[in-house]
Design a protein around this nucleic acid. Structure first.
Lengths: 340, 340
DNA sequence: TGTTGGCACTCAATGCTCAGAAGTGCCAGG
DNA sequence: CCTGGCACTTCTGAGCATTGAGTGCCAACA
């Protein structure tokens, strides 16, 4: 890709800026009047050059210009000047984050709301992968005849609970004993190790003779199954309705379907976990996920020395990256900090 | 309200039926051809009568007729023949319900999905009020410096967890002791009683001398605060996008806002808890909640001898009540059954 | 008396044309 | 190299006639 001259840069930035503001193709006149000290004709020449380079496109001959994905890519990768959060903004976000925690509900959901609120986009959070999570505690509680609720507390710290069926119908006292036995064997291990250990114990001599222990292990195994699936929190999808480009009902539908289906977005976000810092996925890369015209801004967060989850926002490609990127970055830091 | 003649009933039913199918004003011609053995002219006479009674209306003079809310009210309250679930359908729903439980995740969320799936509308579930829930168990787990995760297990059976701040920074061993103390004092009480008891104990002599107990009680109090708020699960809001009447973007927006805000829908559903059976709220009654043109079909479910939660669906007023009502009814029964 | 066919009428939707606005590309002159 | 001017393209919205679905009413008929 050829380097841009200073003037070309300025013009491109102006187009992006104006298009971000108005969501409409930008003409030479507007640019000349509001952004640049050049006549419309001159601007037109530059625009023509940029178009030839594949950075701008026209919906039709007599319309203004719209930045292409390539332009956004270039803008984000180098041109753009980030608009870092002022200490004051940081404080506001931090205060909000902390007060939401006080509120005590689901950390992930709250964080997603936080992102949504401060970025004006749709907030996304992927819960930490639980494979590496250390098991802190298992509690078994009777939940009706033959049904046991297993509560599994990890050191993320997160809580999972599920109902498991028991062949026998243990009393609460028996369940307490079982919990104690399980905690003794399993606590401190990570979930992968827990699985292995349970299998091992079930096969072992002790379990063969101790019927209670065997039952406990079976409950433990069932309870832990499928816990490691990552989970996506999408908050305030309706934010996207404010964007004029989604007035088209068909696009909106496919977008909402994508939000509900989750698995595709999850895959995208999971990929984010590898690299440090904030990453931006633009436009057509999201098309296969049913989110044409959108961009994803995401960053990973750390639980311990390794990254295990990611968060971000989805908005229209025509988004204010300079403002939103620092927000995502800061929230990722907050979450990492909190989880350590 | 005057009684309707047999013929008027048949015509009204036909109009509702056709309008439910197509979402477009129904003309005399269509009715004559597809529903009734009468000439268009005759049908027109009947239509005119029904319009005079306030059961039909015309968007404009040369359009067909649309049922009014009053017509729907009458239809639901008497005219309609419910389309009860076949044993086979019941089995499908039950099997699905149970397999979703196996899956072990949040009962409420799953149920809401279930409703959505079988009714093709937007599923709603209000989690049981927790005031009356018996406390089964409290677990305190260290979640970082000065932070404690309190897991509260009720006999609904449901799990709540929240992070509470602790002035001291107790070790896990101390927390175990605290949990034991709390469980001893509190288990078996319902949440209202728990609150009272904690206050009482905090004021009592024992707590004054036993610093650990005092700290435990404070943690318990903080953990339980706000737990009784009811919570609404809205699943698959995007279902509503399939309905042609919501092609209008403004309406959609206000609808999605309503789904996100939750509190208004919650109030509506809470009102359902009083009466037995399935209830239907039509059209303008939902307007204040930002859901013009929608109907709410809801029923309560029981946890123990008293009703404490409700569930239902929201869809366009032009909805297939005869089919959806039995689904809501049956799911409410399933949930009640499961929770007992 | 209830039912039906016929007819005039209404009104939204559709398609067409046309003028105006916005924007471009290109050229010639500064 | 920049700029003003001009011809050209395309979209947009208003105005207008046409079409079609549907009605109301009336007279005739069983």
């Amino acid at each position: 890709m050829e380097r841009l001259t200073e003037r070309q840069k300025r013009v491109l930035e102006s187009v992006i800026s104006e298009y971000t503001r108005c969501a409409e193709p930008v003409g030479s006149r507007t640019l000349s009047r509001n952004y640049l000290r050049l006549s419309p004709a001159t601007v037109r020449n530059v625009l023509a050059d940029l178009e030839e380079m594949g950075l701008l496109s026209q919906p039709h001959t007599s319309a203004g210009r719209v930045p292409t994905e390539r332009a956004y890519r270039m803008y984000i990768d180098g041109l753009m000047e980030l608009h870092p959060l002022t200490p004051r903004e940081q404080d506001r976000i931090r205060a909000d984050f902390e007060s939401r925690l006080q509120d005590g509900r689901d950390l992930m959901k709250r964080t997603s709301h936080l992102l949504s609120f401060f970025s004006n986009q749709v907030g996304l959070v992927v819960a930490p992968r639980q494979d590496e999570a250390g098991l802190k505690r298992v509690e078994l509680v009777r939940a009706g005849k033959g049904r046991v609720m297993a509560v599994i507390i990890s050191d993320r710290p997160l809580v999972h609970h599920r109902i498991v069926e028991s062949e026998t119908d243990p009393s609460q006292a028996e369940l307490d004993q079982m919990s104690r036995a399980l905690n003794e064997i399993l606590s401190g291990l990570n979930l992968r190790q827990v699985r292995a250990r349970i299998e091992e114990e079930i096969g072992g001599d002790k379990a063969a003779y101790d019927r209670m222990l065997a039952a406990a292990l079976r409950l433990g195994r069932d309870a832990i199954a499928g816990i490691a699936e990552s989970d996506l929190y999408v908050e305030e999808p309706a934010r996207i309705l404010d964007q004029p480009e989604f007035l088209d009902v068909e696009r909106m539908k496919s977008l909402f379907r994508a939000f509900e289906e989750k698995s595709r977005i999850l895959r995208l976000l999971d990929a984010m976990i590898e690299a440090e810092g904030v990453r931006v996925v633009i436009g057509s890369a999201l098309e296969s996920a049913g989110m044409r015209g959108c961009s994803l801004i995401a960053a990973r967060y750390m639980t311990g020395p390794r990254a295990t989850g990611s968060l971000g926002v989805i908005g229209p490609t025509r988004m204010n990256y300079a403002q939103v990127i620092p927000v995502v970055d800061y929230v990722a830091r907050l979450v990492s900090e909190y989880l350590n």
